[in-house]
């Protein structure tokens, strides 16, 4: 059986909120290392990869591998019933028909119990190859969100170029063009504002802003976001969570010109 108690229901709410517009029906794969999710969007352009490690829960118990097939719209409806300060416990039997969600108020004696009917999801599990990226950029998540939201007003696509000069986000549209360049930057007082650029080779790739704006819904989960780029391979956008947990998005580049 599964029993996973999360001190902050809000974390799970934010994760589901960040992915629900990309993917609809997902298996939450539970085993003794934690709860993982991997799902591609319908067009096979973007992939979500979530890992909530067992250390993120207290307690965490999962005796055997359980796949919880859940419709994220249904999950969102139930998670709306949790207050952000509530404690969330996920429970399921070994061969479950439902997943149970228990919300407990830390301050009052209220206990709310919900269940969601599970789905049989025939999910293709993809192997994500280890990649030595040509450029890795860590930057404030809010800054990345701002850039993507600003540029989508002008264009569908953004080119991300990383060179010795820094990282340049540029777009061209019908009304004109826009570009934002960031250089490596260390803020001693506010390290969450740092911009760190590690580059082994110059990279230049073009991506759909629609997807990037979608990924940025995860901005509330982490102060910093990490972008990993190599020429002609999918972009990795990573939000690190506490206890070595993470929410990652992969996006296929646009090709040709």
């Amino acid at each position: 059986m599964l029993e996973a108690r999360l001190e902050q229901a809000n974390l799970f709410k934010k994760v589901v909120d960040a992915i629900k517009d990309l993917v609809q029906d997902c298996n939450f794969d539970c085993n003794d290392s934690g709860i993982a999710l991997q799902a591609m969007d319908n067009s096979h352009v973007a992939l979500v990869s979530m890992m909530l490690r067992s250390e993120s829960f207290a307690p965490f118990r999962c005796d055997r591998n359980i796949a919880l097939g859940i419709n994220l719209t249904s999950l969102t409806k139930v998670l709306k019933c949790a207050q952000s300060d509530d404690i969330l416990t996920l429970k399921a039997e070994d061969a479950p028909d439902v997943v149970e969600l228990v919300f407990e108020s830390a301050e009052s004696d209220r206990i709310s119990e919900y269940s969601i009917k599970l789905m049989d999801i025939d999910q293709e599990h993809l192997g994500i190859p280890e990649t030595d990226y040509g450029a890795t950029i860590s930057m404030p998540a809010a800054e990345f969100q701002r850039i993507c939201r600003d540029l989508i007003a002008l264009s569908e696509s953004v080119s991300i170029e990383c060179s010795k000069e820094g990282v340049k986000f540029a777009c061209q549209g019908d009304i004109g063009s826009g570009a934002v360049t960031l250089r490596q930057h260390t803020n001693v007082d506010k390290p969450e504002m740092n911009v760190e650029i590690n580059m082994s080779e110059p990279v230049s790739l073009t991506f759909s802003l629609k997807y990037l704006v979608n990924f940025c819904k995860a901005s509330g989960l982490s102060n910093q976001v990490r972008l990993c780029l190599s020429n002609e391979v999918p972009l990795l956008v990573e939000y690190s969570l506490a206890n070595n947990s993470h929410l990652r998005f992969y996006l296929a580049p646009k090709i040709g010109d």
């Binding site: 352009v45 190859p129 090709i255 040709g256």
Partner: peptide
């Protein structure tokens, strides 16, 4: 205009 690629080429089934 550049066309959108997919992930199928990069991530194989495991």
């Amino acid at each position: 205009a550049p066309r959108q690629g997919t992930l199928n080429r990069f991530f194989g089934k495991s």
